[in-house]
Amino acid sequence: MDSSENHHGRVSIISDGEYGAHFNKADGGWGVRHVFGLLSFSALAVSYMTRNSINIAIVAMVALNASYVSGQTDVCPLRSLSNETSDNTPTGEFDWDEETRGMILGCFFYGYLVGNLLGGFASAYLGGRVTLGVSVLFVSIISLLSPVCIRTSSTLYMGLRIVCGIFQGSLSPSIFTLMVTWIPPKDKASFGSRVLIDKTLKS
């Protein structure tokens, strides 16, 4: 026995024999399960890019604070800029202190923790397709709104990152729910590793 989504999106129980009738049509070539694997990989890749882009961008976004850096013993000292023009001086647009930067980078995971729990319930009651589609859609919209929110308020951007974490946390439960439906039992291990390999590639 195993579970599958019915036409209402709910997860229902189907027998192992029904798997054979449903999946043997695609055993000889490219099938629905391959499309599912490609789209799931793409969804996770997009989510990881939107999650980690701020980790790289924040270096250039924050204004250079020489007084802060010079007082630290565990960072590289600043090279002298006295002989260079002011146009070449590295600086950023936002004057965020260390605590603000830490909150911006870390608040995502508060939402991510909650999102894993909510995503499991949503996948069970609404179906994996709806949960996955809505999650990717809102993650993309949030990514587009990020520049506006950053320039408006750092607190607003932190809230946006928490919401982004909630939707991204729903991706994995929805994908696992869909794997039960669209992947034959004999292929689940291999397809699961192919879909989730981007976690290793992005780390």
Rank of each mutant, 00 (worst) to 15 (best):
V136Y: 03
S53W: 10
A63N: 10
V75A: 11
T131Q: 06
G28S: 15
F36D: 03
L105Q: 10
Y112L: 02
P147Y: 00
F41H: 01
L78V: 01
S82M: 14
L38R: 03
W96V: 06
R51G: 09
L39T: 05
V75S: 08
S80H: 10
T100Q: 14
L137N: 11
E99D: 14
L38N: 08
S140K: 02
G119Y: 03
G127M: 04
A26E: 15
S143F: 09
G106H: 04
N52Y: 09
G127W: 01
S135Q: 05
V134L: 10
G115A: 08
S53Y: 07
G28T: 15
F109H: 12
D27F: 00
G119D: 08
Y125E: 08
L145A: 00
G28I: 12
S80A: 15
A57F: 00
C76N: 15
L39E: 05
R79H: 13
V75E: 10
E99C: 11
A45Q: 10
A63H: 07
E84P: 13
F23S: 06
I56V: 07
T131G: 02
Y112W: 11
V62M: 09
S67W: 10
V75L: 13
V130W: 08
C76M: 15
T131F: 06
M61K: 01
V35P: 04
L105S: 09
Y125C: 09
A122T: 00
F138D: 08
A66N: 09
S143T: 09
D87K: 14
F36Q: 05
I58L: 01
S86Q: 03
A66H: 13
G71T: 04
C107H: 06
G111E: 06
G31R: 01
C107S: 14
L117I: 03
S47K: 06
R33I: 10
V62Q: 08
N88P: 06
N116Y: 07
D87W: 14
D87C: 13
L39V: 03
G111V: 04
S40Y: 07
H34D: 04
D27W: 02
F109A: 00
A45R: 09
G119K: 02
S70Y: 12
I104L: 12
G29T: 12
G102C: 11
A124I: 13
Q72P: 02
G115P: 05
T50K: 00
T85W: 12
N65T: 02
Y68D: 14
V46Q: 09
G31E: 05
S123H: 11
S40R: 05
T73Q: 15
A45K: 00
L118Y: 07
E98G: 15
N52I: 13
D27E: 12
A124F: 08
S53E: 14
Y110D: 04
G133N: 13
G102A: 02
M61P: 01
Y110K: 04
N116A: 09
